[in-house]
């Protein structure tokens, strides 16, 4: 199962390191990564494979959300199907 992790917020040092560190900790394999910075506004998108995830999807999503709140950015983990459904015919 693949999911999309999005990190949005004000740009600051270490956001990618923090997010990918948590992916490693819970065995979420990063398949693809892209980021853009628009006038201090940071948006990172990570495609991850969750086949070997060591916690449940909900727990992983909550952990990411909480880490984001602590770092002052918005982190969301969403199953890729919602994006496929909305943007592909």
């Amino acid at each position: 199962m693949r999911a999309v992790i999005t990190v949005t917020g004000k740009d600051k040092v270490g956001i990618i390191a923090m997010t990918s560190g948590l992916c490693q900790k819970y065995s979420a394999n990063i398949v693809d990564i892209s980021q853009t910075v628009l006038s201090e506004y940071f948006a990172m998108i990570m495609m991850v494979n969750l086949e070997k995830l060591t916690v449940s999807f909900t727990e992983f999503s909550d952990i990411m959300k909480k880490a984001g709140e602590e770092a002052g950015v918005d982190i969301r983990v969403m199953h890729e199907d919602i994006f496929n459904a909305m943007h592909r015919i």
């Binding site: 999309v4 999005t6 949005t8 693809d32 892209s34 853009t36 948006a43 998108i45 495609m47 918005d74 969301r76 969403m78 890729e80 919602i82 994006f83 496929n84 909305m86 943007h87």
Partner: peptide, 16 residues
Amino acid sequence: MLNTTDILETIKMIRE
């Protein structure tokens, strides 16, 4: 691979 703009559009719809 999904398009960055599409992904951010979905996030904006939900968040804002």
